[in-house]
């Protein structure tokens, strides 16, 4: 599904990623762990095509296509979804309006007709229930005045509606209490399928108690320094990041 080869990238003119290679197959969940400054966010943003992140070397192939040649919105329409660490507020634009506009943009890209308004409402109502959200939530401005937990749940709601093929969760667990974390994790788990893959970027092992990864990668100083099964995360938790990145020991 996704093949990253020797990816090097700059953020704000500073070299951050120094040669990352990674293969993700359909249905797999990969966790990317690492200390602050290791390049986790740069990786997520480079894959999504955010401005300010410049790929200087390497290639990324997504479902046989050159991902790096696509504009951010094309990547999104092709099925790449980034759940943001800090979702922005868009005052005055209702949640349901954004959801519908986004879904229709994606459908149009695939040559499908616009979604019927009644069908859409039914679909959305079913999804918000599963995320323990109130119906009023749909008519509030996008993330306007939302709590941290509500913002993250809103990201998962968008993911559930847009049905992406590759989901990148950028520190989705940050700032969540344990109850909110469970709801978010349940939402993600419900979306797992043999055709959908996940990249979970996180600092802590905690999230992985709720969303079981197939592979864990440890990122340090812009490189993947270790890969393994879920047990790697536990070991990392026990021994600290100094175990794989001695520069953090002092």
């Amino acid at each position: 599904m996704l093949s990253i080869q020797n990816l090097e990238a700059k953020a704000d003119e500073q070299a951050i990623l120094k040669g990352i290679s990674l293969d993700i197959k359909p249905g797999e969940v990969h966790a990317i762990m690492g200390p602050n400054g290791s390049g986790k966010s740069t990786l997520s943003n480079s894959l999504a095509g955010r401005e300010g992140y410049q790929v200087t070397h390497g290639s990324v192939t997504y479902e046989g296509k050159d991902l790096l040649a696509m504009k951010p919105e094309e990547r999104a329409r092709e099925g790449i979804f980034l759940a943001f660490q800090y979702p922005v507020e868009i005052p005055g634009v209702s949640n349901i309006y954004l959801l519908k506009a986004a879904l229709n943009a994606i459908r149009k890209h695939h040559g499908q007709t616009e979604v019927d308004a009644m069908d859409f409402l039914q679909l959305v109502k079913a999804k918000i229930k599963s995320l323990s959200l109130d119906e009023q939530f749909l008519y509030r401005g996008v993330n306007e005045g939302f709590s941290g937990g509500e913002k993250k749940r809103n990201e998962i709601l968008q993911m559930a509606i847009l049905e992406p093929r590759l989901c990148i969760l950028d520190e989705t667990d940050s700032g969540l209490d344990i109850d909110a974390l469970k709801i978010v994790a349940d939402g993600v788990n419900a979306l797992r399928s043999p055709t959908r893959s996940f990249i979970m970027v996180t600092h802590y092992q905690r999230l992985l108690d709720y969303i079981k990864p197939d592979v864990v990668h440890v990122l340090a100083q812009g490189r993947i320094v270790k890969s393994g099964g879920p047990e790697l995360a536990l070991e990392l938790e026990a021994r600290g990041y100094g175990w794989i990145d001695p520069s953090l020991n002092h």
């Binding site: 300010g52 919105e73 990547r75 922005v88 868009i90 954004l98 994606i106």
Partner: peptide, 26 residues
């Protein structure tokens, strides 16, 4: 903000539609 624009683009909207949507909300 660049954040708002990128957020909308990441959900599949073109930059133009994103601006129009943000302004209409405003």
């Amino acid at each position: 903000s660049e954040d708002q624009l990128f957020f909308c683009q990441q959900r599949g909207l073109s930059a133009e539609d994103a601006v129009s949507m943000i302004v209409n909300g405003f």
